[in-house]
Amino acid sequence: MAARLKPVSQQVVVITGASSGNGLAIARLAARRGAAVVLSARNAAALSVIRDEIVAEGGRAACVVADVSSMEEVEAIAATATEAFGGFDSWVNNAAVGIYGSLEQVPLADHRRVFDVNYFGTLHGSLVAARHLRERGGGAIINVGSVLADRAIVEQGPYSATKHAVQALTDTLRMELERERANVSVTLVKPGGCATPYPEHARNYMDVPPRIPPPLYHPEIIADAVVFACATPRRTLYIGSGTIASSLVSQVAPRLTDLVMEAVGTRVQQRAADVQDSTKRDNLYEPRSDGKVCTDQHVMMRHHSLALQVQKLPKLGWIGLGVATALATGARAIASRPKHSRELIGPGRGSHHE
């Protein structure tokens, strides 16, 4: 049975990683929709400015400085929400850090740090939120994942690995809460490329500045998905038809996508060397300059996602995704046949090459 959730205008929403990018977009949209928001990140100065902006526009906001890799600091986020607004109704695990470089280039300490923030930070938030929402009588937990949970990319191995882990964590959390009949919705939002300051903030071991491969979606689209999930139970929300296609292709033709990634994966994540703003570079261990929703890089970004809007429909969205999944399963079955069986199909009539 689906969880019964309050309208967003009646909610208190906690957002981690709220000082920039998707988290900032989520906070602003939730506040505009009438929710009280609890903003959390490591950058105290940026949080204070964002909180004051929301309050000046008539919204309700509180902020708390916290590193989600620490369970104690995550518990302090919940305590702040309780002190300021009497508790919370939705918890958004959005905080994340990134690294560019090969698995061998990245020191083991940095691998662990990415997991400490991206995976254990999500785990900490999920456990604290689940405990609170059980006592409160229900609510929503929304984890911001990535299409890289389905299709790892070269030069971002540690980040991809954490998003695989977050997907498994989210599925497990959902099953456990459903088994105990808790009135808690658990949603995984899976964006493709987002036009956030991620490239500026990520630690970079490549020889040139990084970028996110297009197509890029404006962070407001991710915010729309998250705020929708605060009030409407959904298992998964993909951002963009390209994200869905990438996920399906990686399942149908994994070897082909490996080869494509090997050929162009590094190049599409690099841009011509230029002067980078040192105040924003590398926030792996310490916060840097924050407060912006979008990247400083000149990129083309999409402001709408028809695929997301379809998924928001009561039944049709899931039917569409079900059909797509069925087609992918059928294609995988064809690909798994013995070679002589596939040859009987004939070129151009359903044959599959990886």
Score class of each variant (00 low, 15 high):
residue 271 R to P: 02
residue 180 E to K: 07
residue 208 V to P: 00
residue 271 R to A: 11
residue 231 A to G: 13
residue 210 P to N: 05
residue 273 A to G: 04
residue 193 G to T: 10
residue 228 F to V: 01
residue 194 C to S: 12
residue 173 L to N: 02
residue 184 V to R: 02
residue 177 L to V: 06
residue 220 E to D: 15
residue 208 V to Y: 05
residue 208 V to H: 06
residue 188 L to T: 07
residue 191 P to I: 13
residue 263 A to Y: 10
residue 266 T to H: 14
residue 181 R to M: 07
residue 181 R to L: 09
residue 197 P to R: 14
residue 189 V to H: 04
residue 205 Y to S: 00
residue 177 L to H: 03
residue 218 H to A: 15
residue 191 P to D: 11
residue 256 L to S: 03
residue 198 Y to L: 14
residue 266 T to E: 13
residue 171 D to K: 06
residue 251 Q to L: 09
residue 202 A to I: 00
residue 213 P to C: 13
residue 216 L to K: 08
residue 205 Y to V: 01
residue 212 I to W: 03
residue 242 G to E: 12
residue 265 G to E: 04
residue 237 L to P: 13
residue 167 Q to G: 12
residue 227 V to Y: 10
residue 201 H to W: 01
residue 218 H to Y: 11
residue 241 S to D: 09
residue 174 R to C: 01
residue 270 Q to M: 14
residue 229 A to C: 11
residue 270 Q to C: 10
residue 251 Q to A: 11
residue 199 P to T: 15
residue 274 D to Q: 11
residue 171 D to I: 05
residue 211 R to S: 12
residue 184 V to Q: 02
residue 187 T to Y: 09
residue 230 C to Y: 13
residue 249 V to F: 08
residue 191 P to W: 13
residue 216 L to N: 06
residue 246 S to A: 14
residue 242 G to Y: 11
residue 245 A to D: 05
residue 243 T to D: 03
residue 212 I to C: 12
residue 277 D to E: 05
residue 193 G to V: 09
residue 239 I to Q: 07
residue 219 P to L: 10
residue 261 M to H: 02
residue 248 L to F: 13
residue 262 E to F: 14
residue 238 Y to D: 09
residue 179 R to H: 04
residue 177 L to Y: 03
residue 239 I to A: 10
residue 220 E to S: 14
residue 184 V to S: 02
residue 263 A to D: 06
residue 175 M to A: 12
residue 185 S to D: 06
residue 211 R to E: 06
residue 234 R to M: 08
residue 183 N to F: 12
residue 231 A to P: 03
residue 225 A to T: 11
residue 257 T to E: 09
